[in-house]
């Protein structure tokens, strides 16, 4: 328990945000309290204001500033009422954060169950319940609840990605891949989900005991290519492309084995890419990554990602020099 509370304090960014929260709350008190809007005198209330309160609530809780968080949630309840679904979810979040021990969390879970018994389609509370189950490391229960939720709302892509992560944590790769494919059906241009799917496919190949599954690797490579196609200079995509193409080249150094697979996969599936194509893609990814690591963080890339890309490049160039 002490570990989780220290983690809540760790992020300096959240801390600095929450330090500004008291000022922010004082500044905006007048806008929240007036019930009847008077034209030209009171400010028109905007959606952004309430979204801001939500974000503020989250960062306050994360930084451990429970007092300011309480102020935020009170304001939200004043405005939207305690029976609003979204507010119920946020209130649950607040209660979870200030809960002292596991017994308190268990009580919150019971409360969620009661709410859901009355109103089974209360999505925010259902999601909170799943998150809480996960937090109590009851992952299988969380998966069951999540599949139930998805049966009633199959277009909720946030839930699909969550389910994919849960399956991945249980090393159920085909299920995790299926979930991400469902996400892509709803949001086909989400480049980070394409990259994520590539990563999951790659992980499924590396963790399996078989030598190398060429078809899955090729599929992963295609996913990374698609993410690059959707987003210019996508570091994550190029990183994945380099990893997968490196592995493909080491697993299938000559075209003979790959050519054999072209004949075998004749049931509507895409054929294996030729070795020449993979080599070309590998060269492209290498040169692009080298270029991007030279730009470093000046162009807004994540520093950790750039460092990781540099390491990958160094690793792949060392054997050649020897």
């Amino acid at each position: 328990m002490s570990l989780s509370s220290s983690l809540r304090h760790s992020n300096s960014e959240a801390l600095s945000l929450s330090q500004q929260s008291t000022q922010y709350l004082q500044k905006h008190t007048s806008t929240g309290t007036s019930t009847i809007p008077v034209p030209f005198i009171s400010y028109p209330e905007s959606t952004e204001l309430w979204l801001m309160y939500e974000k503020l609530l989250l960062s306050c809780l994360r930084a451990g500033d429970d007092k300011a968080a309480h102020l935020c949630i009170e304001k939200l309840i004043d405005r939207f009422g305690a029976t609003n679904e979204r507010i119920m979810g946020l209130r649950g979040l607040y209660q979870e954060a200030v809960a002292k021990d596991d017994a308190a969390l268990g009580r919150i879970l019971k409360e969620y169950d009661e709410v859901l018994a009355e109103d089974p389609v209360n999505t925010p509370v259902a999601k909170r319940r799943i998150a809480l189950l996960q937090s109590l490391s009851r992952t299988t229960d969380a998966i069951d609840a999540l599949t139930e939720l998805l049966e009633s709302s199959p277009t909720d892509i946030e839930a699909w990605t969550e389910l994919s992560d849960l399956y991945l944590s249980q090393s159920l790769f085909p299920q995790a891949i299926f979930c991400l494919e469902e996400v892509l059906l709803v949001a086909p241009s989400a480049w980070n989900i394409h990259a994520r799917l590539g990563e999951v496919l790659y992980i499924s190949v590396t963790s399996s005991n078989e030598s190398a599954d060429g078809k899955t690797l090729a599929e992963a490579m295609r996913r990374f290519c698609r993410s690059i196609e959707l987003c210019d200079d996508y570091l994550r995509g190029y990183y994945g492309l380099k990893m997968t193409s490196d592995r493909l080249l080491s697993a299938f150094p000559d075209n003979s084995k790959a050519a054999g697979q072209i004949l075998s996969t004749d049931n509507g599936e895409l054929p294996m890419p030729s070795t020449a194509t993979v080599r070309k893609l590998n060269e492209k990814a290498t040169s692009k990554l080298a270029e991007m690591t030279r730009w470093t963080t000046a162009r807004g890339y994540n520093y950790a990602e750039v460092v990781a890309a540099k390491e990958l490049l160094d690793k792949s160039t060392q054997p050649k020099q020897r």
């Binding site: 992020n11 809780l61 210019d232």
Partner: peptide
């Protein structure tokens, strides 16, 4: 997309799918 990705430091409109605020575990941190 490339511009958005770089300007927001790995953000973009689909970042919400990986942050998943609805499922956030507040006890561990975001």
């Amino acid at each position: 997309a490339g511009k958005v990705e770089r300007e927001s430091g790995g953000g973009g409109p689909f970042q919400g799918l990986e942050d998943r605020l609805g499922f956030v575990d507040i006890r561990v941190g975001i």
